[in-house]
């Protein structure tokens, strides 16, 4: 277990450095932020001053090394646009994004897995067919369109829910969260549902396929033959066995929901990191882009690590690396 963790850590640091390097090259290749940031009326001297202020007058390799040296000390640079530490800009927004992603995933799991089970157990019933038809809609409707329709119906026509922004927050363990206040929940509902829709459909389909496959397995038939209640057959024999692919997908999707909730965040003006990333890319605000991707990659790595742990809990045959097996 320890060796596994250490090896994972080593790999992660390597991934982070490579990623930072690629982003550096990439942003450099796109263009020069000075061209976008400096006022167009500025003369040559002012351009030179702005270039120097952002450290862009130095060779790229030197800029990268300076960044690495800073990163080791925990300093990921200052935003070109806002002149605040990039990491602070991200950390101010990360709670909002994490909250939105978590609520969306909870919605997807709590609704998706039961619906998928129903559709898998009774594929030819009206319920089963309706669930599948619904999941196709969830898959195929574009997120931005669904978001706008939600706003049009629930904010503009009915006036039930606020159309944008994050509601009132309270501190929970030092982190501002909004799901504990009524105002916060009202603001959270539409973006969370909007973001959950695709994942929900995915989980329905995955659970259904797994269920249908598991039902044909010998151990399920044997369990039924043994006279176990249908609740126990489904709850233990079917569900537990189909959970591994589902956990994998949930892990991957959680990462992507955190990193790429951009569309939902911009439609609902949710003050999260996705919107920050898009704006930073448009303005070539390199410190923020790099810092953001580093944070996201770290989250991905952490989520994957957790997924591996969950595997070993779900399936006793899965071992975390050889060292763990040797114990």
């Amino acid at each position: 277990m320890l060796a596994f963790t250490i090896r994972r850590l080593g790999q992660s640091v390597f991934v982070l450095v490579v990623m930072a390097f690629i982003v550096f090259i990439g942003v450099y290749a796109i263009g020069n932020p000075v061209e976008l940031l400096v006022n167009p009326q500025a003369d040559a001297a002012e351009r030179a001053r702005a270039t120097a202020a952002m450290g862009l007058d130095k060779p790229l390799a030197e800029q990268f090394l300076a960044f690495l040296a800073g990163a080791v000390r925990g300093d990921l640079g200052r935003s070109f646009v806002f002149n605040v530490p990039a990491i602070q800009l991200i950390m101010d927004r990360l709670p909002a994004t994490l909250e939105l992603a978590a609520v969306a995933m909870v919605i997807a799991i709590v609704i998706g897995i039961p619906l998928g089970l129903i559709a898998g157990l009774k594929p030819h019933s009206v319920a089963g067919r309706s669930i599948m038809a619904g999941s196709i809609l969830g898959f195929s409707l574009p997120t931005f369109w669904v978001g706008l329709v939600l706003i049009m119906v629930f904010s503009v026509q009915l006036g039930w829910l606020p159309p944008n922004g994050r509601g009132e927050t309270v501190m929970l363990l030092g982190v501002p969260v909004s799901f504990l206040t009524a105002d916060g929940l009202a603001h959270l509902a539409m973006p969370a549902i909007n973001l959950a829709l695709f994942k929900l459909s995915l989980l329905i389909r995955l659970t259904r396929a797994g269920t249908r496959e598991a039902l044909l397995q010998d151990y399920v038939k044997f369990a039924r033959a043994k006279g176990l209640s249908s609740r126990r057959v489904i709850g233990v024999h079917v569900l537990k066995n189909i959970l591994i692919p589902i956990v994998t997908v949930i892990g991957l999707e959680l990462g992507s929901v955190i990193a790429f909730a951009i569309v939902t965040e911009s439609i609902f003006a949710w003050p999260g990191t996705g919107k920050l990333l898009i704006d930073s890319i448009n303005q070539l605000d390199r410190p923020v882009i790099v810092a953001y991707l580093l944070v996201i990659v770290t989250i991905f790595i952490a989520v994957n690590f957790l997924v591996d742990l969950v595997y070993s809990l779900l399936d006793p045959r899965v071992r975390l690396g050889q060292a763990a097996a040797a114990h």
Binding site: F144, L148, I151, M152, S155, V156, G159, P162, P163, N164, G165, S266, I267, F268, A269, K275, D279
Partner: peptide
């Protein structure tokens, strides 16, 4: 002042009275 960069979201905010 709210920053609503997405133009559809900006219009929706006006129509809904936000």
């Amino acid at each position: 002042f709210k920053i609503l960069s997405n133009s559809a979201a900006r219009v929706a905010a006006l129509l809904s009275g936000d």
